[in-house]
Amino acid sequence: MEFVNPIKNVQDIQLMKDMLKERSSRDFVLFVLGINTGLKINTLLSLKVEQLVENSGDIRSFLLVEDQKIYINDQVKTALSFHLKKTQPPLDSYLFKSPKSDSPITRQQAYRVINEAARKVGIADQIGTHTLRKTFGYHAYLKGVAISLIQERFHHACPSDTFRYIGMDERDQKIDVNL
């Protein structure tokens, strides 16, 4: 398995969102949900519409997965609303449904989506499906979320594992911790 990086530049994230939104509402939601929840790709791909949407059509405020309550922020709600209006999927269907079957897209397809989008917007770093999760952790830490909480979300043994995973070097850690 190749080592991949988080997307650290906020402008690159926005460029990817814009490009994916134009190309595919499904891929756009995959990216936005991934970078805003920190969920593993297998968990993301296994999501059904009904886990995020009430019978009334309202988007839930929380998602329950792996015995964790995951907050659904406004970025995710907006992206999800956009996708649902375009596709009108049944509640019992997979959120990231393959156009070829009733199954979700594969990890490999998700990798291609993320990697191709990154290349098209000029990101040269190693990018893959773990990039979504790492991007979530990196930006959560920069916004002041305690590393212990990110460590817990990622099920890491110690903070140093989490710092390494999210692409924080010693210099980044010291700058942010001392603010």
Rank of each mutant, 00 (worst) to 15 (best):
K40L: 10
G38H: 00
L39M: 13
K40M: 10
E22F: 11
Y94H: 15
C158E: 15
L91G: 14
L91T: 14
L132N: 12
E170S: 11
N9L: 05
T87R: 01
I150P: 02
V32I: 15
T135W: 00
I70G: 07
Q68H: 07
G122S: 12
S101A: 07
R133L: 06
I41R: 02
N115S: 00
F163P: 02
Q173W: 11
V76K: 03
E54P: 12
I7V: 15
Q173M: 15
D172F: 00
L20V: 13
Q126D: 11
Q108C: 02
A146K: 12
V4K: 08
Y165S: 07
S101K: 04
K97D: 09
N5L: 02
A118R: 07
I7P: 15
A118D: 11
S24V: 14
Q108T: 08
V10H: 13
V121S: 09
E2S: 11
A110C: 01
K134A: 02
T129Y: 00
K48N: 02
I114H: 00
T43P: 00
K86T: 15
I123Q: 11
L47T: 10
N115T: 00
G144V: 14
R112H: 00
D18E: 13
I105C: 02
I127R: 02
Q75C: 07
D58W: 10
V113F: 04
E152Y: 06
E50G: 08
S81C: 05
R26P: 01
T162K: 01
K100P: 01
S98E: 04
D169F: 06
L132K: 04
T87F: 01
S81K: 06
T106W: 06
I72L: 05
E66L: 04
D102S: 05
S103L: 14
L149S: 10
K100Y: 10
I13F: 14
F28T: 03
D169M: 05
D74A: 05
I105E: 03
A118P: 14
N73Q: 10
D125A: 09
P90W: 00
L45W: 02
R26H: 01
E152I: 01
R60N: 13
S25L: 13
L30Y: 07
P99R: 05
D12T: 09
T129A: 00
A157E: 11
K21Q: 14
N73H: 05
L64H: 13
D27W: 02
E66G: 11
D172N: 06
R112W: 01
Y141W: 15
T135E: 05
M19F: 14
P159S: 11
T135N: 02
R23V: 10
D176H: 04
K21R: 10
K21A: 08
D58I: 10
F82L: 09
F136I: 04
K77M: 13
A140D: 08
V32G: 09
I72Q: 00
F82Y: 12
T162N: 07
Q173L: 13
L30G: 12
K69H: 03
C158A: 15
N36T: 14
G144L: 11
Y165K: 08
K69M: 03
V4W: 03
Q109T: 06
G128R: 00
L30S: 07
G167E: 00
Q151V: 01
P89F: 11
